[in-house]
Design a protein around this nucleic acid. Structure first.
Length: 450
DNA sequence: TCTGGGGTCCTAAACCTC
DNA sequence: TCTGGAGGTTTAGGACCC
């Protein structure tokens, strides 16, 4: 059983803790709860996307709700507990989910709205401690070891946060409390939905050992298979073998990592958001139907390049990327990637697209039917530090200027208010699934057709 | 049966330089 | 001049996470 399965609601076997898995009364005094050596909280919003939709759509209250791709190849991004009762879980194809529960209400994901709610929740979390590490829109780690003297025990802090999130945002969340991040994350799973679970330091091993190997961080279906083949079914089994054997079986890094986790050791500190640096950005698109037309694929590569370049220029302090990676997935689901490192970093769609095009031609997939194309840029440097080659050609077009004008137009009039001519024409090609339309967007030309 | 999108990290081979 | 090892970088792919 994997951790994902645990999260889908399969009950955990194992021990009872001092506090059990149900919420404690929120009026517990700060002094009444010992901390048991636990300074790490994992806060996990319950069925986050679906709950936000329910909050804002009166017709969805009390109904099974699914959020995700509504196209023929969409998958479930979030399902509320009423939908989960039908066996629906995240990452399930939406078509299958609809078959399991035809009366479920299905909404496309509105990431902008979820980001707003997530930011509001984060403000609440940061009112307790500055050491908050967001993991995704719906979960975060908190290090409350510094706040305990001021606010009280970690269970009291968890209940305080839960009641504020419920009162101010109308949403429920679950909180795991433990001495480290790995155990806190598992404890939060155990607390779901709408609960708190604390694993005292002295009981970490007893909590972990009965769990299946799939509950270990870094063990997905492939590694799980290998461990089970070796007769390792539970975390206790993994803890009983030597780190050297694990290293031999799954590689040095993962072997050491699993050996430590299985013994309840996780040295990773809770990193406040500002210290997390971005490594790269990617954008990809699955076509509604497989595509073999090189022109359609090229237009999609341009669209993805535009998106990435704009993000590079406009997010944070502005970045440029040195390496461009093309990803294509054939109709049979085999995936290949090809990458190229540029002589100097770029934040221009024109250059990213040109590189992606070279990689596409070199990959020799021009006659293959593709279901997905994607581009990733990495090796990011802050734009002001990016070395740019000077040109002696005074007549060379100022592409950076052109793209900055497009950024400004997008900011004022909506996404893709200005775009390359080749993206402005009606094409009739299959619409990429999950793509939002931009009703206000009109095609305008730029100095030279791309 | 059908398998999204945006990320991170690890491994291994190939290649280059010393 | 050739060979080999060490070590860094690039490239490709796999696995995992949310």
């Amino acid at each position: 059983m994997s951790r994902r399965q645990l999260e889908r609601g399969t009950p955990l076997r194992g021990m009872a803790t001092d506090h059990g898995s149900r919420p404690l009364p929120s009026d517990l005094g700060a002094e009444s709860v010992p901390d048991h050596g636990c300074g790490v909280l994992h806060v996990d919003m319950d069925a986050f996307f679906a709950s936000v939709e329910q909050l804002e759509r009166p017709e969805a209250r009390g109904q099974p709700v699914l959020v995700g791709g509504t196209g023929p190849r969409g998958v479930v991004a979030s399902a509320n507990y009423a939908a989960r009762a039908y066996g629906i879980h995240s990452a399930m194809p939406m078509s299958q989910a609809r078959r399991l529960c035809p009366r479920a209400l299905v909404y496309p994901a509105d990431h902008e709205r979820y980001s707003q709610v997530s930011a509001a929740v984060r403000v609440i979390l940061e009112s307790v401690t500055p050491v908050v590490e967001p993991v995704s829109l719906d979960e975060a780690f908190l290090d409350v070891s510094g706040a305990r003297a001021r606010l009280g025990g970690p269970v009291w802090i968890a209940e305080h946060l839960r009641s504020r999130i419920r009162a101010e945002q109308g949403l429920t969340c679950s909180v795991g409390i433990a001495p480290n991040k790995f155990v806190a994350k598992l404890a939060a799973t155990h607390a779901k939905p709408d609960g708190v679970y604390l694993v005292p330091e002295a009981q970490v091993q007893a909590f972990l050992h009965p769990l299946p190997v799939g509950a270990l961080w870094g063990v997905g279906p492939k590694v799980e298979q290998r461990l089970v083949r070796l007769g390792l079914h539970t975390i206790a089994d993994v803890a009983a073998v030597s780190p050297a054997s694990l290293r031999r079986e799954v590689g040095p890094a993962l072997g050491d990592h699993l050996a430590a986790l299985a013994r309840g050791r996780d040295e990773r500190a809770v990193q406040p958001a500002s210290s997390a640096e971005e490594r790269g950005l990617s954008a990809e698109c699955t076509f509604a139907r497989d595509v073999a037309d090189a022109a359609v694929i090229d237009r999609e590569l341009l669209r993805l390049s535009e998106r990435l370049a704009r993000r590079l220029r406009t997010e944070g302090q502005g970045h440029a990327a040195r390496t461009v990676t093309l990803k294509v997935r054939r109709a049979d689901f085999t995936t290949i990637t090809r990458s190229r490192t540029l002589p100097e970093p770029t934040d221009l769609a024109r250059e990213i697209h040109a590189t992606a095009r070279i990689l596409y031609e070199a990959a020799e997939v021009s006659r293959a039917r593709l279901r997905l194309v994607g581009i990733r840029v990495e090796g990011l440097v802050v734009s002001t530090q990016a070395h740019r080659q000077l040109t002696l050609d005074a007549t060379a077009p100022d592409w950076r200027g052109v793209e900055q004008v497009m950024d400004e137009a997008s900011r004022r009039f909506g996404d893709f208010a200005l775009r390359p001519a080749s993206l402005a024409q009606p094409t009739g090609d299959p619409a990429p699934s999950g793509q939002r339309s931009h009703p206000g967007a009109r095609g305008h030309d730029v100095p030279e057709r791309w």
